[in-house]
Design a protein around this nucleic acid. Structure first.
Lengths: 113, 113
DNA sequence: TTATGATATATCTGTTAATGATATAGTATG
DNA sequence: CATACTATATCATTAACAGATATATCATAA
């Protein structure tokens, strides 16, 4: 029944998990992402609550108990933080692959003869 | 009828477009991606030929004519190269957002009082 | 010469992922 | 007491991905 294990993070999942490195509730996560990305990346409620549930099932975030508060506050687990470190590196590698391909291009263009 | 305009690139599309900065045919693209990413990222034929068609419709790649060759060779257009530059930057920003969030964490942990 | 494996392109289809729209209710303030 | 914002949640549609399969060519070694 449990849909355990996310082996890597999609962009929305990445930003949500990043947001709860410090404890935050769902609505605040949406605002935080919009702020941190200067409006470039927006996560709406459908995406947010769907993914929060999934991240929780995967053990990457945990629900903190906050009695007498209708808000649900989440925080990244140790496993979540490790996943994030890997995902940051993966995105760096992707960017590096791109830069590399362009470099290789400049190092060989118009070099006939 | 035309499904014009890709405003940003998914990871498979990004790697395919990168691969045809220098003219390459489809099968070679698959190999190139596996090589460049040291096996981390693999694009199979279903994904490849689907996306090649889409990238072409979006004007990001163009089919070169190579008479008497069953292979179809593609190359990124100017528009494609510009898209790639933006996509490299976007991935850098995503990685930077991640690093930033971790930094902010270290700059405030255990600082009650 | 033919069988084997690699090259090369292509589509069909099931599954997963993302998201707009909508719903509901609590809270603050003028 | 109405308006706007806060807050959580699901439904339903669309888009993306990718395994499986199909077909044909080419190189080469037995």
């Amino acid at each position: 029944m449990k849909q355990e294990k996310m082996d890597q993070l999609t962009d929305p999942a990445y930003y949500i998990l990043l947001s709860v490195l410090e404890a935050r509730h769902g609505y605040a996560v949406m605002q935080y992402i919009e702020d941190m990305t200067e409006g470039e990346f927006i996560v709406g409620p459908a995406t947010l609550y769907t993914l929060v549930k999934k991240l929780q099932k995967a053990g990457l975030i945990t629900l903190l108990d906050s009695p007498g508060d209708r808000r649900k506050t989440y925080e990244a687990t140790q496993e979540g933080r490790e996943m994030l470190q890997r995902e940051i590196e993966r995105r760096r590698r992707m960017a590096a692959h791109g830069a590399q391909a362009f470099q290789h291009l400049q190092g060989s263009e118009g070099n006939e003869k």
